[in-house]
């Protein structure tokens, strides 16, 4: 049995509801979920705050259906960008496990695919896609290991959204041929979540083949998480951590430039 992941659970201030959603996700069989913090960079004075520690959410995380392990909760940041100058990789990114970008224009989509240091590129599902997906940026994204995300909750809620979701995802599948696609929820209520096998089947409507649809909720999501982990580490090889003891801080400072050097060399 595969490990299922849902990388998009909307963050709400309401702690009770968030707990409810995560419990439902565990019941449905998701092993890992990511809480999504959306930041719209177009609006002024939007700060990328540090995410709340997930361990505050539960005393004891619910056990996943069919497994004996508790559910894993991660933090995810989604940046809505409409101008290229808005996207600036900052230190705050490092406190999130996964970083996604939602490009509004074709130029930004190209830039997101080719150069932005992100894990996920969101595809519009609530409106008609304002541009066509061109082959070169999509292929570039696939080569870099960046994934495209389709969220299904708007499709469940409303009939017109369903049309947009299906038509946009079909036009994406024409270019990417089912590779590097993940399907996630974007749920705000517990009843909006669907089981992983249902989603794998729903992928057929989105133009994915059977194998790709199942990969979209399991293996591809795992690849996203690993890609996100490489941001915190130097190419996934070296990982530096801050020690709690004050004496260890000096050593930490010495180590930091080494990490930087390793990164720049690799780039």
């Amino acid at each position: 049995m595969a490990v299922f992941v849902d990388l998009n659970i909307s963050h709400t201030v309401d702690k009770k509801r968030l707990q409810n959603i995560i419990e439902t996700a565990a019941h449905l069989g998701y092993s890992t979920v990511a809480i999504n913090h959306v930041v719209d960079l177009q609006q002024k004075k939007q700060e990328i705050g540090k995410p709340k520690c997930v361990s505050e959410l539960f005393d004891q995380f619910p056990i996943v259906q069919g497994k004996s392990r508790p559910i894993k909760v991660l933090n995810r940041l989604t940046l809505v960008v409409s101008e290229a100058s808005h996207f600036r990789p900052t230190n705050e990114f490092k406190s999130y496990d996964v970083v996604a970008v939602f490009p509004k224009t074709e130029k930004l989509f190209h830039a997101a695919c080719m150069s932005f240091d992100v894990d996920i590129i969101c595809i519009a599902v609530t409106e008609k896609q304002p541009f066509y997906f061109k082959r070169p940026p999509v292929n570039g994204a696939i080569d870099r290991g960046v994934f495209f995300e389709i969220s299904y909750v708007p499709a469940i809620k409303d009939s017109t959204m369903r049309r947009y979701t299906i038509s946009n995802s079909l036009s994406l599948m024409e270019t990417c041929k089912g590779k590097n696609v993940i399907v996630s929820s974007g749920a705000e209520k517990p009843l909006e979540l669907r089981g992983p096998y249902d989603i794998a089947n729903l992928g057929l409507l989105f133009g994915l083949s059977e194998g790709d649809a199942k990969a979209a909720v399991s293996t591809n999501c795992r690849a996203v998480l690993l890609h996100g982990e490489t941001r915190k580490t130097a190419l996934g090889i070296i990982h530096t951590m801050k020690k709690i003891e004050p004496t260890a801080e000096r050593r930490e400072e010495e180590e930091a430039p080494v990490l930087k050097r390793a990164r720049t060399e690799a780039v």
Binding site: I156, L191, R194, G195, D198, N201
Partner: peptide, 20 residues
């Protein structure tokens, strides 16, 4: 099945979700 959000019986709506 995933598109079902509620079922109706005798004018009463029951919000629910199918999990296969």
């Amino acid at each position: 099945l995933p598109f079902i959000t509620h079922l109706e019986n005798r004018g009463q709506k029951v919000p629910c979700a199918f999990n296969c």
